Simulated scan of single mutants.
Amino acid sequence: MTVTASPDLVFERSDELGTAGHEQVVFCRDAATGLRAIIAIHDTRLGPALGGTRFYPYAGESEALTDVLRLSQGMTHKAAAAGIALGGGKAVIIGDPATLKTPELLRAYGAFVNSLGGRYITAGDVGTNADDLDIVATATAHITGTNHGSGDSGFSTAYGVFVAMKAAAEHRWGTNGLRGHRVGVEGVGKVGSHLVGLLLEEGAVVAAVDASQAALARLAALYPDVEVPDSVVDADIDIYAPCALGATLTSSSVAALRAAIVCGAANNQLLDTSVALLLQGRGITWVPDFVANAGGLIQVHGELVQRTKEEVLAGVADIAVTVRKILDLSRTTGRLPSDVTADIVEARLAGADVQEVRS
Rank of each mutant, 00 (worst) to 15 (best):
D343W: 06
A241D: 02
C243P: 03
A108I: 13
V10F: 09
T157R: 08
T66R: 15
E303H: 04
G88K: 12
A217S: 09
D343F: 05
G124Y: 07
H77Q: 14
M1Y: 12
L329W: 01
V345L: 04
V354P: 07
G51D: 09
H142D: 07
A208R: 01
L222F: 01
C243S: 13
L133M: 14
Q306D: 15
E61D: 15
T128M: 14
D234P: 03
Q73Y: 01
A59F: 11
F27I: 13
V321G: 00
F162N: 00
G334F: 03
M75W: 05
G154W: 01
A266D: 02
G189F: 01
G88R: 08
Y240H: 07
N129K: 14
E170I: 09
E202Y: 00
T128Y: 10
D318P: 02
G95W: 01
G283H: 03
L222C: 10
L222Q: 14
R13V: 08
A167G: 03
V354T: 03
L17M: 15
T19I: 08
A259W: 11
S150F: 04
G89S: 08
R182P: 00
A247G: 06
P337M: 00
Y240L: 15
G51H: 07
L313R: 15
T140P: 12
K190F: 08
R119A: 15
T140Q: 14
K190H: 11
L329Q: 11
G21M: 13
L105F: 09
V323A: 04
T140Y: 07
V254G: 13
L106A: 08
D125E: 08
Y109S: 10
T33Q: 13
L178V: 01
V345K: 02
R182E: 12
R218A: 11
Y56P: 00
G187W: 00
T138Q: 14
R29K: 09
K166V: 00
L327N: 03
H142S: 09
V183S: 00
V68D: 03
R348I: 01
N268T: 07
T285L: 12
T138R: 12
V226Q: 02
A294E: 05
I84M: 15
V161K: 11
G151T: 11
T250I: 07
